[in-house]
């Protein structure tokens, strides 16, 4: 995957800032004011964000994606069983052949996510553009999504958090996981793991757009979904497992 295919996405930000300000002071209290601003772009169901991870370009030593994820989301990087890990490198060895692979594993952003099905309050949800998120305002910390997720993609925040990224709120008592860097994607940037990879092993794009670099690549090389047998239709695909 060359750099050329990996160009940042067209920004939505430019579209957002106009209009609303001028009307702001005239409208009735509170809610209406926001509805004016609501005219701006939102996550579109026409898009489905996805990732292709080429594990043939991954080495066990390289943790660039993990480090970038921790830095971006202000995770401590500690790896005790109670620490959050949104993205991890899983070292695989074929039991029969001994072939190895070093695989970055994060939320697979399923089309039919088990975590969303089981969440009693609807805090686990899938955005129109396919990104699976936790609404921490509704999360009661029951951890049923962690029981249901086939990928161990979720972490529970076991203690107080103080140094959050202002764009990535996280706190004690809620479940969290990879959000595909939704705050960056919404600004037209790439997920930080994709950007940080020194070997261009990750390709981010729109699975619904047949002309996206991602879709084109998926058409030409063999890829797999992890636990495809479960039929969850993951948004993250792997090459080389």
């Amino acid at each position: 995957m060359s750099d050329k295919e990996q160009k940042p996405l067209p920004g939505r930000r430019a579209l957002l800032s106009g209009g609303a300000a001028a009307l702001g002071l005239l409208v009735a209290p509170g809610i209406r004011l926001i509805e004016v601003a609501g005219a701006s772009t939102t996550a579109s169901p026409k898009v489905r964000w996805g990732l292709l991870v080429d594990t043939t370009r991954c080495t066990p030593e390289c943790k660039a994606c993990v480090n970038a994820c921790n830095a971006e989301n202000h995770l401590s990087g500690a790896t005790a069983p109670t620490d959050s890990q949104w993205l991890r490198k899983v070292e695989l060895k074929d039991k029969r052949t001994g072939r190895t692979a070093s695989v970055p594993v994060m939320c697979q952003h399923c089309a039919k996510p088990a975590c969303v099905d089981v969440c009693p309050t609807g805090a686990s949800f899938k955005r129109a553009d396919g990104i699976v998120l936790v609404d921490r305002h509704a999360c009661i910390g029951c951890r049923y999504c962690m029981m249901a997720c086939p990928y161990k993609a979720r972490s529970f925040v076991h203690a107080e958090v103080h140094d959050q990224n202002p764009e990535v709120p996280r706190g004690k008592g809620c479940v969290e996981g990879c959000n595909l860097c939704v705050h960056r994607v919404d600004k037209g940037q790439l997920p930080t793991c994709v950007e940080a990879c020194p070997n261009q092993a990750m390709l981010f794009g729109d699975l619904n757009d047949p002309n996206s670099a991602l879709s084109q690549r998926l058409r030409t090389i063999a890829t797999t979904q992890v636990r495809a047998d479960l039929g969850l239709d993951t948004g993250v695909r792997y090459h080389g497992i």
Binding site: Q85, R88, V90, P150, R227
Partner: peptide
């Protein structure tokens, strides 16, 4: 729950996250 989740059947897995 203590039994490791089989994410990659047929492979031996190890990671910082208890895989």
């Amino acid at each position: 729950q203590a039994f490791p989740l089989q994410i990659f059947p047929g492979f031996e897995a190890s990671s910082s996250f208890g895989d």
